[in-house]
């Protein structure tokens, strides 16, 4: 299967602060991939690089095989972009913005836009500048659905949304992606929303990718282990993630099963070892640490 997004050896820094070094990943056609990372790990930076709004120090990203800084109009028509904060042209009203975008896209589905907006308490002549962030998010989503792109790139789609709008956004997006076999690449701070949506997770740490695996594999295989130990346990042990303690109560995270973890911890006098299943948010904390 051809990758829709392909990033090869991306290195970028802001001044002396290195953001990534030789970052490589790809997104396959028809998959929903979430880019997770703590603040400052460069999630928005990668979205900017992907769309050609930032030139990295080195490396190249390709969308549908075209380099990011030379995307053809035909490829741009296949890419739906949601900017962080659901940024839109706020001087338009609901009807005007649809009329404007509709002239650019050959597959424009006007009805998809108005169907979604019918659920909102907005009039066709209401200006976008007078809308709440939640209402604006639905306008942005409606425009994306009407564009009917093959690839959706969503930068922090949950930013500023209350739980109701977040859920609405996720449900519509999930339905849209599954029904149309669309590729979606998204970032969000609210990881519990991602659990319902994404097939694959890319977890970023400062300067690198920590993990790129199917979400199901993480949810089924990654465990938190709690145990007690009389003395110190090394923070870094092969196969264990973010081992830490409060008093003599310890916790660690691992993809290994209980038997293997017990074997690794035995030299340190670990007792009362018990495994816990994790939500995606807990797994994210386990992978990236609390601090």
């Amino acid at each position: 299967m051809n990758p829709v997004i392909q990033c090869d050896n991306i290195t970028h820094s802001y001044g002396k602060k290195l953001i990534y070094e030789n970052l490589c990943f790809s997104v396959e056609e028809g998959s929903v991939v979430g880019l997770l990372g703590r603040n400052g790990t460069g999630k928005t930076t990668i979205i900017n690089i992907l769309n050609g709004y930032l030139r990295p120090r080195s490396g190249v990203c390709r969308l549908f095989g075209e380099p990011m800084d030379r995307l053809s109009p035909a490829t741009k028509a296949r890419v739906g972009l949601l900017l962080e904060g659901h940024i839109q042209h706020t001087y338009f009203n609901v009807r005007q913005i649809e009329r404007f975008y509709g002239r650019f896209f050959p597959k424009w589905k006007r009805d998809a836009y108005y169907e979604l907006l019918e659920k909102l308490q907005v009039t066709p002549t209401q200006r976008i500048s007078t809308m709440s962030c939640g209402q604006r998010s639905q306008v942005a989503l409606g425009l994306l659905f009407a564009q009917d792109p093959d690839l959706l790139i969503l930068d922090d789609f949950s930013m500023g949304l209350d739980p109701g709008y977040r859920r609405l956004f996720v449900e519509y997006l999930r339905e849209y992606a599954r029904a149309g076999k669309k590729t979606v690449f998204l970032t969000s701070h609210i990881i519990q929303d991602m659990e319902m949506l994404i097939d694959d997770c890319i977890v970023m740490d400062y300067g690198r990718i920590l993990l790129h695996r199917p979400t199901k594999e993480i949810l089924e295989g990654f465990r938190r282990y709690r145990f007690t130990a009389p003395g110190p346990v090394p923070e870094k042990l092969e196969g264990l993630w973010n081992t830490s303690a409060i008093g003599n109560r310890w916790e660690t995270y691992s993809f290994l099963d209980g038997e293997h973890v017990a074997g690794l911890l035995a030299p340190f006098g670990a007792e009362n070892l018990r495994a816990e299943r994790l939500s995606l948010e807990d797994a994210f904390i386990g992978l990236t640490g609390k601090y």
Partner: peptide, 18 residues
């Protein structure tokens, strides 16, 4: 100024045209 507020020029440059 509206194009540069919130860097909306990205929206314009993302339109499928040269």
């Amino acid at each position: 100024v509206p194009e540069m507020t919130d860097r909306r020029l990205k929206l314009t440059l993302h339109l499928p045209a040269g």
